[in-house]
Design a protein around this nucleic acid. Sequence first.
DNA 1: CGTGGTTTTGAGCCCGTTCAAGTATCGTGG
DNA 2: CCACGATACTTGAACGGGCTCAAAACCACG
Lengths: 246, 246
Amino acid sequence: MQHAELNADCTACSVRATSFCGAIPLRGLNTLARSRRLVQYDRRQTIVSEGEPATSFFSIVSGVVKLCRSLSDGRTQIIGFRFPGEYFAISDSENYATTVEAMTFVEACQFPRSRLKRLTQAFPQMQARLLDMSHRYLAASEDQIFLLGRKTAKEKVASFLLSYSEKFAQESAGSGHRMNLPMTRAEIADFLGLTTETVSRVLTGLAREKVITVGLSHSVRLLNVNLLQRIAGHWGTHEGGPARAG
Amino acid sequence: MQHAELNADCTACSVRATSFCGAIPLRGLNTLARSRRLVQYDRRQTIVSEGEPATSFFSIVSGVVKLCRSLSDGRTQIIGFRFPGEYFAISDSENYATTVEAMTFVEACQFPRSRLKRLTQAFPQMQARLLDMSHRYLAASEDQIFLLGRKTAKEKVASFLLSYSEKFAQESAGSGHRMNLPMTRAEIADFLGLTTETVSRVLTGLAREKVITVGLSHSVRLLNVNLLQRIAGHWGTHEGGPARAG
DNA sequence: CGTGGTTTTGAGCCCGTTCAAGTATCGTGG
DNA sequence: CCACGATACTTGAACGGGCTCAAAACCACG
C-alpha cells in the first residue's frame, strides 16, 4: 500500500529542521513540493531493492527503515538504519546498491533521481547540507566497521544499546534511560553480525548483571550507563583489554 | 618529514581528472592553488590522528593511505584505503574521527578546513563532485560492513584480492592478473577483521588450490578469477551456500 | 653476514554458531 | 474476553572456525 498525497504543504513539515530540505529558503519550498511525492509504507514492505534501476531517492518524514545487503544463501547484513529527517537511496551508480525496508509504518518524500541535479543547482545550500549528512552517514558506517571487525558479542550489544539510547531514550526518574526498540532480536543480530541466539543470550546476561532490564514489546531500560559504556569499549586510555581476555 | 611546495601549478596535476578539483574550471585553478599546500609523507607516518581538532582535509596526488580506528588495548581496524585522486579527513565534527597513516610515500594537497566552505561556494560543481565521491565511499563502506559481518575468512580474503585487482592488476599474458599489494599481512588482517596468521593460512590455502600464486615482496597473481569470484561469494542466484556449511 | 621484522606453520582452545526444543507474546477471529 | 495459531524469544548441548600462544623459516636491509 503506497498511498500518495501530492503537493502537500512543505512549510509545516515536522522534519524540515533536520532534513536536507531545511537548507532550502521558504520561497523555494513550492518548487520542492512540486518535485516530491508523499508515500507511505507498512512495516516489512520493501521500498527499494538491491540491483534495481535507481529511479528515486527518499527523505523520511516519520518511521524507521533498514538498509540491507544479502547473499542468495540467506545470509543478511543490515548496513544501517535511517530515521526521520534522514535520506536514503541516493545511489552513485545506475542501480541501487542496497535494499531498503520499512521497519515501522513509514512516511517519506519520494523524489525522482533526475530531479536531484536540478534541485541542487537551484539551491546550493541544499547540496552543502547533503554533503554534511553523507559525511555523518560515513562516520556512522566507519563506527560500524570497527564494531563488526573488532568487538566481541557483548561489546557489540552494549555499543548498540548505547548508540540507540543516545538518540531515543527518555530519562525516567531514578531508574535509568528507557527506550522502545523498533527492531526484533533477529534484526539486531543482522545489524551486529551475530545470530538471534547470541543477542538473546547477551541481553539476558546483561540483565542478570543488573546493567539493563528487558521488558515487554522491545522495551529496554539502561540501569547503569557507565558500566555499559565500559563494557562497550568506551574505556579510558589507562584501562585494560576486552572482556574475552579476562 | 613534511616538505611544502607552495602554489605549484594545478593545471598539470596528474590526478585532476579524478579528484574533486577536476570539477573546477581552468580559470578557477589559481584560486585553488593558492588555497592548498603540497605535503609529503613517508611510509608509516601518521597524517592525522583520531580525536585531534580537524583543521585540514587532504586530496591524494600519489601514494596510498589507510584510515584506522583503534582501541587502547591494541585492537585496530582499518576502515578503508584512499588512493590517488581521493580525499580524506573531511570531518563532520570538530575533531577527526579516524587516524590516517601513509602506507607508501604519499604526496597530497592539504587544505585548511575553513577553506572548504569558501571553495564550494565559489565552485558549486566541486560540491557536486564531492557529494558523488562521498557516496562512492559510502557504498564501499557498506560493502565492507557486509564483508565483516557475514563472510568467512576465505570469502573475506578472496573478496579483498578481487576488489584490489579490479583497481590495480595488470593483465600479464596467459598467467592471470598480477599485482603488488602495498600492505603487509598484518594490514590485510586489520582490514578484514582477522589475524595475521589466518590471512597467511588462507593465502597458502588458495595457493595450494592453484587459485593464486604468492610471490616475493607482496606480489600476488590471480590464476583463476572465476573460481576466486565464486569463493568470494559472487555466486549466481541459483547456486549454493557458503563454504562453512558444506 | 648478522639483525630485526615479517611470514609461515603447528597445536590447542574458546567464543559464537548450529541444531534442537521449549516458552512467551502478538494478532486475529469467535 | 479468551482460544488459537504464528511469530518471536529463550535456553541448552555440542561443534567448529578463527584465535592464541609458540616457534621456526624467510626476507629486507645495513
